[in-house]
């Protein structure tokens, strides 16, 4: 799949933003007044910034409101609802903390649940697609959720939780990569099943339907970026999990250490999310003799 920057930024930053909101909703850290304002501003900046970024790849963003209508079948529509609901609930809860110094516990917990549900809905936009076998598995929602709560814990200054969750995240990312590598083959999709010519013999593309490119190839058959996938995996894993965990374990907790850990985690996450798209193979590539 084409790793569009707008979609990478959207999933990474909205995931982090909603992850941070989930922690704030639970009162972790227990902040009020100006400190709370800074935390909430950061979370909203990332969550809303990510959502706005996602509209950049739309052909007709002026009709985006229509995306709220089909929540009964569409994960994309559900994500829209959950995002708006969690941002509204957390705005009321945050206003209580910032302006009144009051913690409305029930509202906070509701906001946390909604925030995590938003991340789950985002992950299912990809996880639901049978056409991309690498995504179509439990690892996709699991990974998005742990990215959100792990990165959120890091942002929220929850050191112990961050260490545990980032170790879990590293392991999960490794499992997602290794199991994902075999999933296309295991799903049984081949040029023979795609064309139905399997009973006749082995199929090879003789001639493409067009000499130039097209939307399908640009959007869904992204083969150029996989050359350095192995190196990128190692770099991403080091950034998103190993280095932040080592920093938090070995150095005394503080704002500078926390900031460096967040930056490293963010860089690793962006790399991993780029790979999430670039390595994903869509079955339509089979019709073009590509994967």
């Amino acid at each position: 799949m084409h790793p569009a920057p707008s979609i990478i930024f959207f999933t990474v930053f909205s995931g982090l933003g909603f992850g941070l909101l989930a922690w704030l909703g639970l009162g972790l850290p227990d902040v009020t007044g100006w400190v709370a304002f800074v935390f909430f501003a950061l979370a909203y900046l990332m969550a809303v910034g990510g959502l706005i970024s996602s509209t950049f790849h739309l052909g007709n963003p002026q009709r985006a409101l229509r995306a709220f209508t089909q929540w009964r079948t569409s994960w994309l529509s559900r994500e829209g609802w959950l995002a708006v609901l969690s941002l509204l609930v957390m705005a009321v809860y945050g206003a209580g903390l910032v302006f009144l110094g009051e913690r409305w516990t029930g509202l906070g917990i509701l906001g946390s649940i909604l925030s995590l549900a938003t991340v789950y809905a985002t992950s299912m936009i990809y996880g639901q697609l049978k056409t991309v076998p690498r995504w179509n598995a439990w690892t996709t929602p699991a990974l998005f959720m742990v990215f959100a709560v792990g990165g959120g814990a890091l942002m929220a200054g929850q050191v112990t939780a961050a260490i545990i969750l980032l170790i879990l995240l590293g392991g999960l990312q490794y499992i997602a990569w290794t199991t994902g590598d075999a999933r296309f083959r295991d799903a049984g999709h081949t040029m023979e099943t795609a064309t139905g010519l399997g009973p006749v013999g082995k199929v090879r593309l003789l001639e493409s339907p067009h000499s130039g490119g097209n939307y399908l190839l640009r959007e869904m058959v992204h083969v150029v970026g996989r050359k350095h996938a192995r190196k990128l995996r190692i770099l991403s894993l080091t950034g998103l999990s190993i280095l932040p965990v080592l920093l938090l374990l070995l150095l005394p907790a503080g704002h500078i250490v926390g900031l460096i850990a967040v930056i490293l985690h963010l860089a690793g996450t962006l790399g991993a999310r780029w790979l999430f798209f670039a390595e994903a193979e869509h079955v339509v590539g089979l019709y073009y003799g590509k994967r």
Binding site: G59, N60, A194, E219, M220
Partner: peptide, 26 residues
């Protein structure tokens, strides 16, 4: 009513849907 998000083209195994690059609709 199409916002041109392209998700339907991703969901189609057969490459039957193409987003028109001028109009931004499927």
């Amino acid at each position: 009513a199409c916002i041109g998000c392209g998700l339907c083209a991703w969901a189609c195994p057969y490459g039957a849907r193409e987003l028109d690059q001028a109009a931004g609709v499927m």
